[in-house]
Simulated scan of single mutants.
Amino acid sequence: MKPTSTSPGSRALAASLREVRVARGKGLRELARMVRILPQLLSAWEKGQRVPQPEDVARLLGALRVDDLTYDRMMRLARHARDDNWLDSNPSDLPPALNGIVEYERTATRITNWYHAIVPGLLQTPDYARAILSNSEIGLEQADSMLVVRLNRQRILTRPDPVRLTALIGEIAIRDEIGSPDIMSDQVDHLLQMMALPNISLRIVPANIGYHPGLIGSFILYEFPGLPAIVHLENSHATAFLHEAEVVGDYAKQAKILSRKALGEDDTRALLREVAR
Rank of each mutant, 00 (worst) to 15 (best):
Y71D: 06
G62A: 12
V66C: 09
A58Y: 06
R82G: 01
D84Q: 08
A78V: 03
L69Y: 13
D72E: 13
G62K: 11
M75Q: 15
R79H: 12
D56S: 09
L60S: 01
L87F: 05
A63K: 06
L61M: 11
L61H: 10
L60A: 01
L64H: 13
R65M: 14
D67F: 11
E55Y: 08
R76L: 13
W86C: 03
M74H: 11
R76W: 09
D67I: 08
D83N: 05
R76F: 13
N90A: 14
L60R: 03
R76N: 06
L64M: 14
E55Q: 12
R59Y: 08
D83Y: 01
D83W: 00
D84N: 06
A78N: 04
V57Y: 02
D56N: 04
T70R: 12
A78R: 03
D56W: 02
A63M: 09
T70A: 13
N90V: 12
M75K: 13
L61T: 11
S89R: 08
D67Y: 10
D56M: 15
D68M: 00
H80F: 03
R82Y: 02
N85L: 01
P91F: 00
V57I: 14
S89I: 13
R65W: 01
M75E: 00
Y71G: 01
D84E: 11
W86H: 12
M74Q: 08
D67A: 09
R59G: 01
H80A: 08
D72V: 14
G62D: 15
A78G: 07
L87H: 12
P91R: 01
L69C: 05
A58C: 02
G62L: 04
L69D: 13
A63C: 07
L77Y: 12
D56K: 12
M75S: 03
R59M: 15
L87E: 10
S89T: 15
D88I: 07
L61V: 07
L61P: 08
R79W: 01
Y71V: 01
L61K: 14
W86L: 15
R76H: 10
Y71Q: 13
R59E: 10
D88V: 14
R73V: 15
A78L: 07
P91A: 00
M74D: 03
M74V: 09
A58E: 14
T70E: 08
D84F: 00
V57G: 11
M74S: 06
E55P: 01
H80M: 09
N85Q: 07
L61Y: 08
R82T: 06
D72C: 10
V57Q: 10
R65T: 09
D68S: 15
V57F: 04
T70F: 00
H80R: 13
T70P: 05
R59N: 05
E55W: 12
L64V: 06
D68A: 15
D68H: 09
A78M: 03
L61S: 10
S89N: 06
A58T: 03
L87D: 04
M74F: 04
Y71A: 05
R82I: 00
R76K: 03
R65C: 07
H80G: 05
L69F: 09
M75Y: 10
D67R: 15
R73H: 11
D88Q: 00
V57P: 05
E55K: 10
L77I: 06
G62E: 12
D84A: 09
R73T: 14
A63I: 08
R65H: 11
P91Q: 00
R79L: 15
D83S: 02
